[in-house]
Design a protein around this nucleic acid. Structure first.
Lengths: 252, 252
DNA sequence: GTTCGGAACTTGTATATACATCTATCGACA
DNA sequence: TGTCGATAGATGTATATACAAGTTCCGAAC
């Protein structure tokens, strides 16, 4: 360790440095990234942390490496790591837009068969449902349907969902979301979607369904977000040799 | 190195072993993955390769790790690495379906403004366009529009696109696709889409636009694939602490 | 029986080294 | 001038070690 790293890990400092160089344009697409040994010298460290940082950038699709050649910066879509999609508010701010929201309904209900399957509870068990319309700069962008088992959702019921992030509320209540699976597809707007999002019934919408889990693997959230395709799209970069989590599903 | 690894790298052998255990169900969701030291002993290797294999599984969303705890197998969507989406044929086979295709048109044309921008050539420059309908088990699933600059696409013109993979043809011709960017959104079926895919005009389709690049960063393919959402969906798993390449885009 | 503390274990991070394998470059030679 | 080959340098892979930091679990003290 060099001691010059700002309170965090060495590889994190290298990562931040390279990300800044790339996003600021000091390292343009097509240009070579400094070699591992140059980075070792600059950060007074060994190859381990340097390779760790480069590996992360490779998986994110920002650079490409290969035996014998120096790494090069790739021409990429502007990447906002998708984790922020866990929080619409945060994502919106990073896009330079002003987030807004209006809760259409928040109800205590009983799980339908589909909801019960998704949350791994029994049909008829109590749940908390939330329907929220999300805005960016005042324009409706997304309709969010959230569904929690009651013992999780009760932390939301006693909370004004227009006043802040549901996620932060859950975390503050000791609910620990550890990982999530997402499925993207396209659906036609139904009557509710059309009315609230201001499109015609049948208009194409992006649907992002999410299931969030605790570390023990218990599902604690199910959501169905419907985006206006004109305002939100999803992107991914693949580099040969790097892995990315996107996959394609068959059938229903 | 142990020497017992089957001709490849140590970390690859560990990766294969763990993947098989997970997909065969010997390691069920929620169960602990063998600890690093157990894997070191089993494969007679050091922590390096073991950690490399575990890191890949973590990025793929198959397992979750954390300081102090043992890694656990996650409940995930069945993952087919998305690289295979570069080849519809291959993806289809891995899904246990029989791929089919019918080329609707293959033309030498001149780049429109949008195509020129995407391929980084000038409007009016010669290009090769390909329109193909793709089947799985005889059912139309996807409509594929491909577009190449002429010097790349000419390798396709002299080739029966119904006889095999365009990708393999390009690679055999010395065209080296190195990385690709993809954008997913939803569109309404236009007249051509509706007729060929057998849906009503205006029906929601998943659109996957792709740009493929050489290692030098030159764009050599632009494609617009439109999937029936009933037959193809896209999925991704995020684990806290692991990076994945999916991101969300604003605006146009 | 309950609670607290500590030991043992696990993963995360870092160092130093070695060799394999591929690329780029430059100089010798024709 | 052009081609070929050697060489230096790059990343990929593997080993061995060390310490940091978090979790689990068991036993001692109360």
């Amino acid at each position: 360790m060099t001691g010059t790293t700002r309170g965090t890990q060495t590889y994190g400092a290298i990562l931040t440095y390279l990300r800044r160089e790339i996003s600021a344009g000091s390292l343009e697409p097509g240009q070579s990234v400094p070699s591992e040994s140059e980075l070792c010298a600059r950060f007074e460290t060994s190859r381990g942390p340097v390779r760790q940082a480069l590996g992360i950038l490779r998986d994110e699709g920002l650079i490409s490496s290969g035996r014998g050649r120096r790494s090069v910066v790739l021409e990429t879509v502007p990447v906002q790591p998708f984790d922020v999609a866990l929080s619409f508010t945060q994502w919106c701010r990073e896009m330079g837009m002003e987030p807004g929201q209006r809760t259409e309904s928040m109800t205590r209900a009983w799980a339908t068969r589909a909801q019960a399957d998704s949350l791994e509870i029994d049909p008829g068990d109590p749940i908390v449902e939330l329907l929220r319309l999300r805005f960016a700069d005042g324009v409706p962008i997304m309709l969010e349907r959230l569904c929690y088992p009651y013992d999780v959702g009760r932390h939301v019921l006693s909370f004004d969902p227009d006043s802040g992030s549901v996620y932060e509320r859950l975390i503050a209540s000791g609910v620990d979301i550890h990982h999530a699976t997402r499925i993207l597809d396209a659906v036609a707007a139904d009557e509710d979607d059309a009315r609230l999002l201001g499109v015609q019934e049948g208009a194409p919408l992006m649907r992002l369904r999410r299931r969030a889990f605790t570390i023990e693997g218990r599902p604690i959230e199910w959501s169905d977000d419907r985006y206006l395709p004109s305002h939100a799209r999803f992107a991914s970069t693949t580099v040969r040799g790097a892995s990315n989590g996107l996959s394609m599903l068959k059938g229903l």
